[in-house]
Design a protein around this nucleic acid. Sequence first.
DNA 1: AGCCTGTGCACCGTGAAAGCG
DNA 2: CCGCTTTCACGGTGCACAGGC
Lengths: 328, 328
Amino acid sequence: MRKISLKKIAELAGVSVATVSYALNDSNQVSEVTRAKIKKIAAEEHYVPNLSARNLRTSSSNLVCAITNTYQGNFNGDVLQEIQNIFGRAGYQLLAVSGQIPSLVRTNMIDGIIMLNYRGNQTELQNLVDSINKPVIFMTNEIKSDNAASIVIDNDLGIKYLVETIHQSIHQKVCFITGDSNSYNSQRRLNAAKKYYTKLFKKNDFEKHVYSGNYDPTLSFELGKKFIRLNRYNSFICFNDDMALGIYHAASQLNKIVGKDISVVGFDNSFESGVISPGLTTIDVDKKAWGQEVVNQYFKLKESGSKHTVTTLKPKLILRESVNIKTD
Amino acid sequence: MRKISLKKIAELAGVSVATVSYALNDSNQVSEVTRAKIKKIAAEEHYVPNLSARNLRTSSSNLVCAITNTYQGNFNGDVLQEIQNIFGRAGYQLLAVSGQIPSLVRTNMIDGIIMLNYRGNQTELQNLVDSINKPVIFMTNEIKSDNAASIVIDNDLGIKYLVETIHQSIHQKVCFITGDSNSYNSQRRLNAAKKYYTKLFKKNDFEKHVYSGNYDPTLSFELGKKFIRLNRYNSFICFNDDMALGIYHAASQLNKIVGKDISVVGFDNSFESGVISPGLTTIDVDKKAWGQEVVNQYFKLKESGSKHTVTTLKPKLILRESVNIKTD
DNA sequence: AGCCTGTGCACCGTGAAAGCG
DNA sequence: CCGCTTTCACGGTGCACAGGC
């Protein structure tokens, strides 16, 4: 099929290109009769506007780019899907990319950026945000700039819930398994973990009990196998649900029962956390509300170019059977 | 920061726009000295080419669009990530979208399309592929067109392995839980399931034992709970791993042990299938090889516009402990 | 003549200001 | 003022060509 342009439609309709442009963009510069005629022809010829040309002319698009570290894992997939839905309803098209920041986003083909779990040099990121002239929303970061906003989870509160829960268990030999060290969420969770561990357990040896799990379930599996066998730890605070599953696996291999012999908690409320047995105690954030807030802030930034804001979402504790709570 | 164009660089370098264009595109129409000077200035000014303008002129880009039904679930995330990596290494930028087919892909901003699990009207899809003038690769479909190719899993073989495995178990009351009815993979698996069930179990009542699970673990959980309680079935062939987890959950609620009291098999070899206890017997496809083949076919199509081909990938059986094999 | 280096210009499709009967 | 046309600019590409050796 040949490409149809405004020019071709103009020829077919016997009018000028400008008239066609006006007609299709619902400008009142054209009579109703002509508009109807032009629209009919456009539909018949399956006219699709050339976005490159339009963008070149107007320097704007309805394309928003979501940059993430990976498509894999429950968390990213769930959040991306939610953001996509909400932007879609607002008339925007979300394009997801993973890995490097594409040079694409520096061109005016892209109207704005959503950053989800991007791992990269902070100063580079700061430079990008400062030099780029469009809204950037961070979901797991707090880069400060006039055209940026952050909507983040209250990691402190989430970790508080988890440490409190473990503190009420019969398993007081507690171990922390973190995400990768350049993850914003993992860093925040680590700070909170230290704070609440020190406060509740009244000990100053936090660092001795922290292990890097890199958000990777096979790593946590190895750690769990070692620690459970040695009886070094009997409770595991994992910074995401996937790693908690690794601990489940280790326990099962060693014939230990989660929720009885050991306690485990996770973070994210992935669908597996509710489906596995015993159910995993974890932290939930309302992803719908999160996505909605991202889009709200996006439009605010786009219209007013307001000052940098950080919005915090309150998470919820999802109490299931993976923790053996003290009865007294 | 102000936008830098070729024109600005040309002024700064004291040469013409054409020379700048040649220099930056490594054409040999320009001397090494001039090229170096121009490149230096471009770097200093943080020049970023305007992709819209370039695309408008050349009608080509390095952008490939991956269309999927959702970012959620293990399967899509894993495959998208793999494709992204391989296209990235080949100098292409992958843009992922989920949901509707964006009008974007009909413009020449997009160089080609990868279709992963797109659910939509087949004739509409056929029209799109026929009318669009760029490579389309299907990973879960077999649309025939000169500019399309399919690289699909051998679902027949995968299901054969699973039915054979269950046939060797002590659990002969077998039930099939399918994906959603407009999924290509689910349809193929259904056909294969009928064939091998009829052949091995020597029965003609296949349809009575098929239930729609919609690839949704909560649905399979409900089905499993009902059937296990009634002792209607004792083995479950699920068309993906997520639904198999739903059966695990149901079994655990009813104090039945998977791999002993009931048998369960899945499809996809998700990471949870290996981490859960007992390990889930499932079907694996080499996603790296799949992604590589997709990119190979993409380039073939792009260069030669060859005839439609269907490539089939052989899956592997991953035998774990979720099936209680007969010992004799 | 031929080679090297650089320039002028038409063009892609769209949107909108200015002009005109 | 209405309804339409003419014209131009957006940024980049690459052909045709020019001038020097």
